[in-house]
Design a protein around this nucleic acid. Structure first.
Lengths: 211, 211
DNA sequence: GCAAGAAGTCAACATATGTTTACTTACTAC
DNA sequence: GTAGTAAGTAAACATATGTTGACTTCTTGC
């Protein structure tokens, strides 16, 4: 829509000037679209991203989005699901006392497929009810996982406070991710993982005191 | 774009069934548009909001957006400027030791014109360079103000850390505002100011220890 | 080697959306 | 009261965008 960077073909053609066409592979094409979409949706939001942008980034034809994901909306939902899976996978295996470091590492990772990108995606909305439900599910599960690492147990009295605090911590992480990757606020944007881990540990520990 | 709520006429016609037309007033019309736009942009983002949505909410004709603000982009920039002014005005007069309470109060205010709305607006992007510059300016000034309340002085050695921490606190506030108002994550979304002030004080004090 | 089907392409479409132009209506200075 | 002007309206336009259907090209099982 607005001055887009040149569509990098996403295919790892190692110094290959002759644009040899990729071997036909539905699964791989699907993944290329998913990656390109995740990146665009996370950085620019749903409405500002066009299906032609995504297809160009992935180096495939626009029509394949409808074929593989039914619609732009379907592609977005697939992105949300993927983000949820990856988030759960990486945070699930974090020992309770390492939570702040894990968050810092995820946020610091500014790569295209980085965890930071997944976090940003979680506050992009398409206005569609289905997508909203998926996103809310991911956020609830993530915050429950975070709260559980600090002693939260479902239904336990006074435990609601912990969940609320976990959601505030999650919101902080998402806010930082967006301000870094989309808004590019300095010095936050250029801060390294080293720079971030201290403040974020303070933040998480203050919200969710280690038991 | 997607199932919009019925356009509330924004004119305070007190139980007035007869839709008596508002007296012609350029300044007031401008303000109606500004208010409606701020609300929409904050909640749905720039690209997902159409000028017809805004005009309908304000109860005025679409063409007046171009007349008063040149373009949709111009209207968005005006919203950002207004948010910056209001933010500076309200945070500027906060004594240093009351900062967390002030943040909590601002975030808790979910009203249409509430401060929470202004915060959400600050991470909406239009992709336009001019708007990006305005937003970055507002964010930088806000974080500097916040950092200054806790001892930061421009250019002072080791002071960069404080600014970074203030930006993380600001990011947390924005993240909470969006998760509450746009995403509607429970229980965060239903939390009262009372519920929020404790955790947010812990958060701010941990990031920016009171001197 | 070849046929069947999967994978990919192309062009057209319907529609939504930002903006402009020509026009009408209300307010106000005199 | 009325002319002149500002405020507001309606319709049209150009374009961007999501989606579809007919067509072509590649791959693979036999």
């Amino acid at each position: 829509m607005t001055a887009a960077e040149p569509p990098v073909p996403a295919t790892s053609d190692t110094a290959g000037d002759p644009p040899q066409r990729r071997r036909r592979d539905a699964a791989e094409t699907r993944q290329l679209l998913l990656d390109a979409a995740r990146h665009r949706f996370a950085r620019d939001g749903y409405a500002a991203t066009t299906v032609r942008d995504i297809a160009d980034d992935a180096g495939v034809n626009v029509a394949l989005i409808s074929r593989y994901f039914t619609s732009k909306e379907g592609l977005f939902e697939a992105c949300l699901r993927a983000a949820g899976d990856e988030l759960r996978r990486t945070t699930g295996q974090t020992p309770a006392d390492r939570v702040p470091e894990a968050i810092a590492r995820h946020i610091a990772d500014l790569g295209a497929a980085g965890l930071s990108s997944q976090l940003s995606l979680l506050l992009r909305s398409s206005g569609d009810a289905g997508a909203d439900e998926i996103r809310r599910g991911v956020l609830v599960r993530s915050s429950e996982q975070l709260a559980a690492a600090r002693g939260w147990r479902p239904g336990e009295p006074g435990s609601e406070q912990l969940l609320l605090r976990a959601q505030i911590a999650l919101a902080a992480g998402i806010g930082v991710a967006v301000l870094r990757s989309s808004i590019q606020l300095e010095p936050l944007s250029s801060a390294s993982e080293q720079d971030l881990v201290g403040p974020l540990r303070d933040l998480v520990d203050a919200l969710l005191p280690p038991t």
